[in-house]
């Protein structure tokens, strides 16, 4: 009887712990979704913060371009090498171009560019907003009758959603340039065969699917980064923890949503 009672007490505490975790997750998810809706809605309300918006477009887009070009080129090069390794066994080396193009357009371009931007931009967004929260700059905005979500979150979110598809395109293009260079100069694949493979097998829908994914990844990255930063507490340590969580959660959500979207659009 005593053992049974002890077991039920342990079970109860486990259930309580699980409920706490689930309710905590749901409340954070709800908070982040509410913030996202408010931020996207208020972006179209005056006053229009064009300067802030352009500043974030530059930071997220232009300043990430070099990183995206470099990582994209090397991803294309290594994918060409690995693709050749497999195709060579079946004498289908001419399909290397098509394989790399499909992989870059549908998966590698949107996913890896989003992960790179999460590391560079998402972390910075969380740290900046978290620091503003901890130094009362967000309170100062509210006390001046300025909506901090409209001023701080909206431009970041919209700039991310617009920029990510462009970065995915740049990633894909530089990846194709890298793959072409490796395939034609190192693997001795005929340039005409490389290009005709792409023309024959890559469809416009492959590119649009990739772009849709990039839009969703931009939304996820900015939503998590802004939410974690906006509500960061606990001084500089708290900002550090929030930044780490933002990067980890964004990256995981990007990969999960990638699978879900691929399954839907397959």
């Amino acid at each position: 009887m005593k053992a049974l009672l002890m077991m039920s007490t342990e079970d109860n505490s486990l259930i309580k712990m699980a409920l706490t975790v689930v309710s905590g997750f749901l409340s954070q998810l709800g908070g982040a979704l509410i913030m996202t809706v408010m931020a996207l809605k208020s972006f179209f309300w005056p006053p229009y913060r064009i300067r802030e918006f352009l500043r974030h477009l530059d930071f997220i887009g232009s300043q990430s371009a070099f990183l995206i070009i470099i990582t994209g080129a090397f991803t294309g090069m290594v994918t060409a090498l690995q693709g050749y390794n497999g195709m060579h066994r079946y004498g289908a080396e001419s399909l290397v171009g098509a394989t790399v193009a499909l992989a870059l357009a549908r998966e590698l371009g949107p996913v890896l560019s989003a992960l790179m931007v999460t590391g560079r931009v998402g972390s910075s967004m969380t740290a900046e907003l978290g620091s503003m929260r901890n130094t009362q700059q967000i309170d100062a905005l509210s006390s001046m009758a300025v909506d901090p979500i409209h001023y701080l979150v909206s431009p970041r979110m919209v700039a991310s959603i617009i920029t990510l598809p462009f970065l995915a395109c740049i990633y894909g293009f530089s990846g194709m340039v890298g793959a072409y260079f490796v395939s034609t100069s190192y693997l001795d694949i005929d340039p005409g065969a490389f290009m005709s493979g792409i023309r024959n097998y890559v469809d416009i829908s492959d590119i649009t699917h990739g772009l849709i994914k990039a839009v969703v990844f931009g939304l996820i990255m900015s939503m998590v980064a802004c939410y974690k930063g906006f509500y960061a507490t606990g001084g500089s340590r708290g900002v550090g923890v929030a930044t780490t969580k933002a990067v980890v959660i964004s990256s995981v959500l990007i990969l999960i949503s990638d699978y879900v979207m691929t399954a839907i659009m397959f």
């Binding site: 900046e128 620091s131 503003m132 130094t135 009362q136 700059q137 309170d139 100062a140 006390s143």
Partner: peptide, 11 residues
Amino acid sequence: GILFQEGALFD
């Protein structure tokens, strides 16, 4: 008008 503890100037 509010003067915050550390000034709360925008960085």
